[in-house]
Design a protein around this nucleic acid. Structure first.
Lengths: 256, 256
DNA sequence: TGAATAGTGTCTTTAAGACAGTATATC
DNA sequence: GATATACTGTCTTAAAGACACTATTCA
């Protein structure tokens, strides 16, 4: 990848300058909310996954392409929530051409465009993380899931980006349905209840939760139960696709 | 301005490439909601006011600086609402180097950075438009207020940007206090009532409006009345600065 | 039959929404 | 006193929130 690298660090015209995309990829599994982070180089600091925008694609397409590189998943639900830009945000004294050379052997020009002032258009997305095997990029040292409640040291302003993403997600959940990407096709009431509790970070009264969720009409009770352990079998539900799509468009009232 | 122009069109390093700021500047005055638009060149098409980001400033600072250029106002309330970016969004066959040359006499290179793919970080802001004398830039043909309900032909994707800004403003109004920038220091209930009706584009029951607005505590009734025509004099109110600031931070319930 | 989880109904409190008559100022 | 606008209170309805018992499964 010698020549490609040289081209990349010089940016021969494939990518936009000074603007990129950052994806806060949230992953849910069994009452745990995690976020996918990567290590740009072997430092004990992490960033959200992000990348550059090709001249031929929209910012949304860039976000999708970049998320696919790390997760192997396509067609995720994406939500743009804010853009970040100031001259100091990409400054981190750990990330220099010299350190990159030392750790990776790559010759990166000190004035490479990748060290320039970048405005970041930030998106968040949601997935079921047990299905995802994170794939690190060639220029990254690592890429893995971290619990939202117990993050490692974060580089740049990415701690703020994650915090804002979580805020946007929690606001979003009050106005739009959520869960399609995070649950099996058929799921139980306790499962979706835990999902909402985990994302919102607080407990929700089970009776009121069920009452209101059913009132929206976005889920349908099935005539099957899920066999679990030595306990009463819970009924299975599925999303009403049409009502769900309509809720995504025009909103639902779910202010838990 | 010869040399400066040449420098500008070549971008000698003062501005970021491929990313800029667009401001949807809303103006309110006597029950009318307007938006400040400019004509980049003498075409019968208009854009929202926008500009480029200096390498030394944040995107918020850029938005403030650019709004100041057009309105002469500083310290406006700004709200970032979305970023727009796709390869085709800046394509408008009316805006070419040849046409610019013809209309303005300026020699703009056909491959100037200003014709490139731009990601736009969009903000909206609010002001009292009767106090503002719009100032067009040197490269613009015109700059003036247009009623939101009766817009001229709009260039690029700026009709969508305006529509999204209005949507964001109307959503914002339900969660945060508004009006500080749009009303005199002392104002009457009917005045703020009209303001909300105008922004929301619908009529609000006067009794319920007053009840809820007072319940938030963000306005204080004064012991003065405003002398108007041959009618009962309405009481004056002012914003409770602290409650207002707190409402901006943590939100208020004003879902009209 | 004990342990663990599923599932649901009612009451209270609060907020939203609809609605109309009295008060005040000026001419 | 005619007119135009300011101002406010009550009732109804809907939603939110608090709360606890019964049902099922199987070890």
């Amino acid at each position: 990848m010698e020549q490609e690298d040289a081209d990349f660090f010089l940016n021969t015209g494939q990518f936009l300058y000074n603007v990129g995309v950052d994806n806060v990829i949230f992953g849910y599994h069994e009452k745990e909310l995690k976020v996918l982070l990567q290590q740009p180089i072997p430092l004990d600091k992490w960033t959200v996954t992000g990348g550059y925008i090709k001249r031929t694609e929209s910012i949304e397409e860039a976000a999708n392409r970049i998320a696919f590189l790390r997760t192997g998943l396509k067609g995720l639900f994406f939500q743009q929530f804010r853009s970040f830009g100031n001259p100091d945000r990409s400054k981190d004294n750990g990330l220099t051409a010299a350190h990159l050379k030392k750790m990776t052997g790559l010759d990166v020009p000190e004035d490479s465009w990748i060290f320039d002032y970048f405005v970041s258009v930030a998106f968040y997305t949601l997935t079921e993380f047990s299905k995802v095997e994170p794939k690190k990029g060639e220029l990254e040292a690592d890429c893995q899931w971290w619990p939202v409640s117990d993050l490692p040291p974060i580089m740049f302003d990415h701690a703020m980006i994650i915090a804002e993403a979580l805020k946007a997600l929690r606001l979003h959940i009050a106005h739009y349905p959520i869960g399609y990407e995070l649950l099996e096709e058929k799921f139980t009431l306790p499962e979706i209840h835990s999902l909402y509790e985990t994302i919102l970070g607080k407990s929700l009264d089970d009776r009121n939760f069920a009452k209101r969720l059913m009132a929206t009409g976005i889920i349908i009770k099935l005539n099957e139960t899920k066999k679990i352990g030595a306990h009463r079998s819970p009924f299975l539900y599925k999303f009403d696709k049409e009502k769900y799509a309509e809720g995504l468009k025009s909103g639902v009232a779910l202010a838990f």
